[in-house]
Nucleic acid binder design. Structure first.
Lengths: 213, 213
DNA sequence: GGCGATGTAGTCAAGTTTGATTAGTGCGCA
DNA sequence: TGCGCACTAATCAAACTTGACTACATCGCC
């Protein structure tokens, strides 16, 4: 799974109705252009694609007051909402060491009820443990890991990463169970999008810590 | 950077001369089809592309004895070797949390002199530390991390991951400095490719622990 | 001896990602 | 007033990725 669909669906959903540039700006506010493939081309493409698939509803709208070509505004459909939660749950549950999907999922975590978030995260830790066991069993030759030579370091890296993530997930579960953050249905939600007039401190242009290099 | 070029260049280089299917098989032996985009289409595409760019030299060859369409054999050029080491050094040095590139780089680590490997890995740890400092400074608002709400957990994940990787890198440095593994110019190298008649225990077909899901 | 399974080698179309480019608007200013 | 610059918004071609598909040969075996 690539993170782009989850990100775009989530962003449109938070706005209720949003045009491409707004989504793009939101994702920049999140820093998503740094840790995911949320580049303009991909965003506009995802919007069109998902509109074609019935996950979004496209509205042609009068040219913007701010110049530029006419906008298209998108609204999430029922089917889109379903897809959104499917993606979100899957991203939270499955262990596939992809930072972008993981990060996106955390950003939308509070769209779920608190109890479900915890359940999914617990399933995630279980998945990590299973994966770890399978890797150690499957990729260790009879002669012991030395047989693999330096290639064994790849496995070593995987294990180390998996352990670190399990630890982090455990910590997050504890924080959530301890009452941290505001989940859906618990009153005033935390808004992770920009208002129309708000300036974006993380807009494109300068380099940021997430950049490769 | 995607891992495919590094993987393909490295595989061709280890063989001296290889056709597409051989490269594909090697990468399967490595398990690379599970943790990277080393799928048939990508491999053949990369071979053609790099031949066009002068990194590889294509030789048309008589149809194989084993059936199937006529093979093309590839040989790495001087320019290709240069590119290979550039990619390898970059993959080792830069911190960009992409598992596939990292894993590929470790697989080829011993193509470098031991001393250089250590230097690059140390540079990597330094890069991680810098990145960590930049993230904490840049993404923490004045009001403290609580201001970010659950979005702060994304940063938390980044930091946690970075720390885990720094730790692992440190361990690897110590093992290498302690004399582990055989690096270039140190006698009989460890061969990470299959001989012509050797069976591939990790060939495509069944699912393996690295699979998403 | 014919037929399906398996192995070898590569192609292809469809979809996705990327980074550059287009295009319109308003603003400063000489 | 007219030039260039910056911003908003979206498009496009080129490159890349994916997974299914073709094509040919051999092997087992009933």
């Amino acid at each position: 799974m690539s993170a782009i669909r989850l990100l775009v669906l989530g962003a449109v959903r938070q706005h209720g109705r949003a045009h491409g540039y707004q989504v793009r700006n939101d994702l920049e506010y999140w820093g998503a252009h740094e840790w995911s493939n949320a580049k303009p081309g991909s965003i506009y493409h995802a919007l069109k694609q998902m509109a074609k698939q019935g996950l979004l509803l496209a509205h042609e709208v009068a040219p913007s007051t701010a110049g530029g070509p006419p906008r298209t505004e998108y609204e999430i459909t029922e089917q889109g909402t379903e897809e959104y939660f499917t993606l979100l749950r899957e991203a939270l549950t499955s262990y596939d060491q992809k930072m972008d999907v993981k990060s996106a999922a955390i950003g939308f975590l509070v769209d779920l009820p608190r109890a479900e978030a915890v359940t999914l995260l617990k399933e995630r830790t279980r998945g990590i443990e299973e994966w770890r066991a399978a890797v150690t069993e499957h990729y260790v030759p009879e002669g012991g890991p030395e047989q693999l030579g330096h290639i064994g370091e790849i496995m070593n890296l995987w294990i180390h990463t998996a352990d670190a993530e399990a630890e982090w997930t455990q910590g997050l579960i504890e924080r959530i169970e301890g009452g941290a953050y505001t989940f859906t249905g618990e009153g005033e939600p935390f808004v992770g999008v920009l208002a129309e007039d708000q300036e974006n401190p993380y807009a494109t242009g300068e380099r940021h810590p997430g950049d490769a290099g």
